[in-house]
Design a protein around this nucleic acid. Structure first.
Length: 247
DNA sequence: AACCCGAACAACCGCAAGCCA
DNA sequence: CTGGCTTGCGGTTGTTCGGGT
């Protein structure tokens, strides 16, 4: 069958973009807006593949990009989101205004992976690497529909604990929804979880749902165990949540 | 000064999902 | 429903740069 090539390779430039090419792309998008990437290069007078134009715009030229170093807060958000979502860079990027999936992916591969390993944590599984096992205790308080999870790393790190409770028990403050994508809408529809880090005064409301095949913090059964759905799994996973607190 | 090496980041590639006629 | 086209995503590769020897 074979797919038609995304562009006429013989007549397209590759490699680093020149200032002139950047300017052409910026000017064109300023006037015509984003989209129609396939036809854009020709219309804009660029000898580039549409894909390449899109990538250049999204990852480098977009005016709302933050650029510069990642803050500690952003680090934490990335790590926590990655522990829940895995390599879903676009979803993670959607929660970090001004950051792109490519940027986060690169940052993860070059900085965070190393940082986690140095703390004895496997960056892929977010579990302690053999030899630096954390002890996880959890205590559910049914009357309050909340669970207190205590994590005691054995590698000398400071103990940590946090509380998880259904989001409806708290104020309706949400993290800013920046992407406005279907995913965010799904998140709102499918449920959410409130995450409170007891070790400090910051609270991180991840407000997430997950794709298929991952561990989930999302409600999958009755919150109070009264069997409102077929399976009786808790609506959040304390082990996954515990992993978060390690970071 | 020249070389090597690793870190950082930009860009490419293949694939899959979504859209639409 | 089907198939072609477009767009978006994630993995990977290529390039540049800075520090060490």
């Amino acid at each position: 069958m074979g797919r038609s090539p995304c562009c006429e390779k013989a007549h397209t430039n590759k490699g680093a973009w020149t200032k002139e090419e950047d300017q052409r792309l910026i000017d064109y998008i300023r006037i015509h807006g984003e989209g129609s990437w396939r036809s854009l290069p020709k219309s804009a007078g660029l000898l580039r593949c549409g894909k390449s134009c899109r990538l250049r715009w999204i990852n480098y030229l977009r005016p709302d990009l933050k650029r510069g170093n990642f803050s500690d807060e952003e680090d934490k958000v990335i790590i926590k989101l990655h522990s829940l979502l895995g390599n879903k860079w676009s979803l993670i990027a959607g929660r970090l205004p001004g950051r792109t999936d490519n940027e986060i992916k690169n940052y993860w591969n070059t900085h965070i992976k190393r940082k986690l390993r140095s703390h004895g944590i496997d960056p892929q599984t977010h579990r302690p690497i053999k030899g630096s096992i954390a002890v996880i205790h959890s205590k559910t308080v049914p009357s309050q529909l909340s669970t207190v999870v205590t994590v005691s790393p054995q590698n000398g790190a400071v103990d940590n604990s946090f509380t998880i409770r259904p989001k409806t028990d708290i104020s309706s403050d949400n993290v800013a929804s920046t992407s406005g994508t279907t995913t965010d809408e799904d998140i709102r529809q499918n449920g959410d979880c409130y995450y409170n880090d007891n070790s400090g005064d910051r609270e991180l409301n991840l407000d997430l749902t997950l794709g298929s095949g991952s561990t989930s913090l999302v409600r999958s059964g009755g919150r109070s165990g009264n069997g409102s759905s077929a399976d009786s799994k808790p609506w959040w996973d304390p082990v996954t949540a515990a992993r978060l607190s390690l970071l």
